[in-house]
Structure formats: C-alpha cells, structure tokens
C-alpha cells in the first residue's frame, strides 16, 4: 500500500511533535515506514520526516558520500531546493556520512540570531540505533527529572553540538532516526551530559 500523504504524514508529524516536546522519548514510525515503496539511499524514517516538513519554502543540505541521488529525488517530491550548509534550513545526515564532514557542518550551520532564533537549522540525523540506555544523560524542558539515551554518535559530535547551543536561544534542533524507524528529538533546550567515552 502506498503512503498516504495526508493522513500518514499527519501521524508522522504528531510523532515528531511528541518527541520534540519530550526530548529523549523514542517514537516509532514503523507502520508508515512499511508503506514507503521508493528506492532511496536513506532510511524510510528520514524520508517520512522530510516529506512531513519540507516544501518549496525551505532548503536542505545532505551530508553523505553520495548525496546527489537523494537530493534530486527530495527536490522532485517536496519542491525544496538544496543549499549550501551555512544556508540550509534542514540538514540531512545519512548513515554513510564521514565524521569529519558532520562536525564541520555542525560548526557551519545556521543557529539563528537573537532577534530571530527560529532562523536556525533542523537536523535529520541518521544513526545506527536508538535506545534508552546510559550513554547520554538528558535534562531540560520536556523531560521529567532526566532521561538516558544512546544514539550511537561519537563524543566529538555531541561536544560540538553542545558548543553550538551554548548561547540559548540560539542553537540547532536534532531529529535522530534509525533503521528500525525509531525517532528521537534533541532540541536546543536539552542539556546533554556524556556519561561514558563513546
């Protein structure tokens, strides 16, 4: 069965919203991911998130060894245009992205300005697996007491992210996705403490 762009994407949006308002809470997009019958070099969950939020009014940048194919398809499906990393509204990091490239992009991407902090980039970050285990300790708005989270990204990446959100309300909001269609959000308000060396 094909994906329903009205009803399925509405439910995907609600899952993203739930996870964004409860940082560290894992939502699952499996029922919708099953319906994605496109041949794409990204996770189904990544594609669903892009379909939910991208349109002609926004731009995206893809960080991957082989970004051209996905870039062409995303533009065709959503009418969003690709842009350089320092201008892109959405930054899509695929599983095969090089560590060095991700860190560089984190340093270059938009974080908004004090008058308009919403002019910041939102990240779709593909990871090897998302579970609620001790690796990162999350605290902040949306979290009752604290939450443990393991996303399978390197320590360097989190320290770079922490540097970029230091000057609140400036910062970036992350939507992390894995191959099992799990989704977890880490908005700029979330304080991340790295519990062990990754």
């Amino acid at each position: 069965m094909a994906m329903d762009q009205v009803h399925d994407l509405q439910q995907v949006y609600r899952k993203i919203l739930h996870s964004m308002s409860h940082p560290g809470t894992i939502s699952n997009l499996e029922p919708f991911a099953e319906k994605v019958d496109y041949d794409l070099p990204c996770y189904e969950a990544t594609f669903l998130s892009a379909m939910t939020l991208l349109d002609a009014e926004v731009t995206f940048a893809i960080i991957s060894e082989n970004s051209q194919q996905l870039s062409t398809k995303l533009t065709a499906y959503t009418l969003a245009k690709s842009a350089p990393i320092h201008e892109a509204d959405y930054i899509i990091v695929l599983q095969d992205a090089l560590q060095q490239d991700i860190v560089e992009a984190l340093q270059q991407c938009k974080i908004g300005n004090l008058i308009d902090p919403q002019f910041s980039s939102t990240w779709f970050l593909e990871s090897s697996g998302i579970v609620n285990q001790a690796e990162l300790l999350l605290t902040g708005p949306g979290i009752k007491d604290e939450t443990e989270l393991q996303i399978g990204l390197t320590k360097e990446l989190w320290t770079t992210r922490n540097k970029r959100v230091k000057e609140y309300p400036l910062g970036i909001d992350l939507i992390c996705l894995d191959n099992e269609a799990n989704l977890v959000c880490v908005p700029r308000t979330t304080k991340i403490e790295i519990l062990e060396v990754v």
């Binding site: 919203l17 964004m20 308002s21 939020l53 991208l54 902090p117 919403q118 910062g171 700029r188």
Partner: peptide, 17 residues
Amino acid sequence: EGSKKEIRRATLKAVAI
C-alpha cells in the same frame, strides 16, 4: 497540505524555544 507544513514547522520551532 502546504499550509499545514508551514504551521507544523513553526510549531516545532516554538516547542524548541
């Protein structure tokens, strides 16, 4: 759907700030 997307994007930013 375009209008919904725009409102949804603004809502997610609002939750993050």
